[in-house]
């Protein structure tokens, strides 16, 4: 299998992703995976904080838009009411997070974001399992898919290419592919359809959060067939 080497882990793509996240320009699916990356990765957190500071300043230095009097009146009425106006934070189930091998903070983020909590793994191929997060939404949001993927120790995912952008965030363990090696909190951005990659888990195995924005193009005919039956 020919694997195309690539430079898609370029800092610029990463910086731009973080900047767009900080500015509020990403769609909700993208925001959730970048938010998880930011929770896990100190360097990303620092970079996003810088961009947020920049955002605050650019927001303040822009031309203000008139706000109706009613807006303030409503806010004042709302803060007058019971202080617990907001729904209680989703109780976070540490045990569940542990069973899934994902950090508790990311579990809380996912469960508050998706209607369906992450349930059981479904086997995709030998040594590869996944959980579809919000499958209903995926139908509405074209081909966007947010998934948890699990590779058993040393196992490889089927080689595939991406028609759209793919974001892969390592939650536990790690993997290696033609673009490099990734550990907890690292994010791999692939936005080049020419890239074919085959992530292979390290000896600890690997649990990732992935967002694919178009159907995967599997290289092997058998996987294409499986894909036709079971979806991406």
């Amino acid at each position: 299998m020919t694997v195309t080497p690539t430079g898609t882990r370029a800092y610029s793509a990463h910086d731009i992703l973080l900047m767009h996240y900080a500015a509020g320009r990403l769609c909700p699916h993208e925001s959730i995976i970048v938010a998880a990356h930011v929770l896990l990765n100190e360097q990303a957190r620092q970079r996003v904080a810088e961009f947020e500071a920049l955002g605050g300043q650019l927001m303040c230095s822009g031309k203000p838009a008139a706000v109706t009097d009613e807006c303030l009146a409503r806010v004042l009425r709302r803060i007058e009411q019971a202080p617990q106006d907001l729904p209680a934070p989703t109780p976070c189930d540490e045990k569940k997070a542990q069973d899934l091998h994902i950090p508790v903070a990311v579990y809380a983020l996912i469960t508050s974001f998706c209607a369906q909590g992450p349930y059981g793994w479904s086997q995709l191929a030998h040594g590869v399992a996944r959980i579809d997060l919000m499958p209903e939404c995926a139908k509405k949001a074209a081909d966007k898919k947010l998934q948890l993927m699990k590779l058993e120790p040393g196992e490889a995912a089927p080689p595939h290419a991406h028609e759209g952008r793919e974001l892969t965030l390592v939650l536990e363990g790690g993997f290696t592919d033609a673009t490099g090696s990734y550990g907890p909190g690292d994010i791999l951005i692939i936005d080049n359809p020419a890239v074919v990659h085959q992530p292979t888990a390290t000896q600890e195995g690997c649990v990732c959060l992935t967002l694919t924005e178009a159907p995967l193009g599997f290289i092997h005919p058998l996987y294409r067939l499986l894909h036709a039956f079971f979806g991406s």
Binding site: A22, A23, G24, L26, C27, P28, S31, I32, A35, A36, V38, L39, E52, G55, G56, M59, L86, P87, P89, T90, A105, A108, L109, T111, S112, F113, C114, A115, M134, E136, C137, K140, A141
Partner: peptide, 30 residues
């Protein structure tokens, strides 16, 4: 700014995906 940004993401999420856990302020967990 960060609070406003997160509120906007949550509003977009509610708008696009009615069936998600739409009342939860998800981004507060971020």
């Amino acid at each position: 700014f960060t609070i406003a940004r997160n509120k906007r993401i949550d509003a977009l999420r509610r708008e696009k995906f009615v069936d998600v856990n739409s009342d939860a302020p998800a981004m507060e967990n971020a």
